[in-house]
Amino acid sequence: MQGNSGACRLCSGGGSRNKMRAMQYGIEALHAMGYGKKTYICHLDDDSIVDKPYLMYVKYYLKAEGAQGCIRLRAFGRHLFSSLSDLVRISNCETWCKFCNLRGKPVFVHGEGIVIRADIEYEIGWDYGTYGAEDLLMGLNLSKKYHFSLVPIGNIYIAPPTTTKDYFKQRRRWFWSILNNDGKIRKLSPGTYLFYIYMYINGVLGLIMLLAFPLILMFTEFSGLMVAVSVMNVASFYAYYQFGASYMHSLPTSVLMFILQVPVAFYDGLTTIYALVKRPDFTTFETIKKV
Results as ranks from 00 to 15, higher is better:
205 L>A: 12
186 R>K: 10
216 I>K: 10
234 V>C: 14
243 F>G: 07
189 S>D: 04
233 N>W: 12
215 L>Y: 13
193 Y>L: 11
206 G>P: 04
210 L>P: 00
213 F>W: 01
225 L>G: 13
214 P>L: 05
184 K>A: 08
209 M>H: 04
174 W>R: 04
186 R>T: 10
218 M>H: 09
205 L>H: 05
232 M>G: 15
184 K>S: 06
193 Y>I: 09
177 S>P: 11
213 F>C: 10
207 L>V: 09
233 N>P: 01
186 R>L: 15
214 P>K: 05
179 L>Q: 03
217 L>C: 15
240 Y>W: 02
234 V>F: 00
204 V>R: 01
207 L>Q: 12
170 Q>N: 10
243 F>N: 10
216 I>W: 10
229 V>K: 03
234 V>S: 13
192 T>L: 11
189 S>Q: 02
201 I>K: 04
230 S>G: 10
240 Y>M: 04
223 S>E: 09
235 A>P: 04
240 Y>D: 06
191 G>R: 01
200 Y>H: 14
185 I>L: 13
205 L>M: 13
221 E>F: 14
194 L>N: 05
237 F>L: 15
237 F>E: 15
203 G>F: 00
241 Y>A: 06
223 S>G: 12
233 N>E: 10
201 I>H: 02
200 Y>M: 15
193 Y>D: 09
224 G>V: 09
200 Y>W: 14
187 K>I: 06
227 V>G: 05
196 Y>K: 14
242 Q>S: 01
171 R>Y: 02
216 I>A: 07
174 W>K: 06
228 A>Q: 03
219 F>C: 10
179 L>V: 07
189 S>K: 04
214 P>A: 06
234 V>R: 03
187 K>H: 11
213 F>A: 10
231 V>S: 01
196 Y>W: 15
197 I>G: 04
194 L>W: 14
209 M>G: 09
221 E>Y: 14
228 A>Y: 07
197 I>D: 03
194 L>E: 05
183 G>M: 02
179 L>I: 13
208 I>P: 07
185 I>N: 14
198 Y>S: 10
235 A>L: 15
226 M>C: 07
187 K>F: 06
226 M>E: 08
203 G>I: 00
177 S>E: 03
214 P>S: 12
215 L>S: 07
187 K>E: 13
213 F>Q: 07
218 M>E: 05
222 F>A: 09
212 A>N: 06
236 S>R: 14
233 N>V: 03
212 A>S: 05
185 I>S: 13
236 S>M: 14
196 Y>D: 00
216 I>G: 12
218 M>A: 11
191 G>P: 07
203 G>P: 04
210 L>F: 00
182 D>Q: 06
185 I>F: 14
219 F>G: 08
193 Y>P: 03
179 L>T: 06
195 F>R: 04
185 I>W: 12
178 I>A: 11
210 L>W: 01
191 G>N: 07
203 G>R: 02
212 A>I: 09
241 Y>T: 01
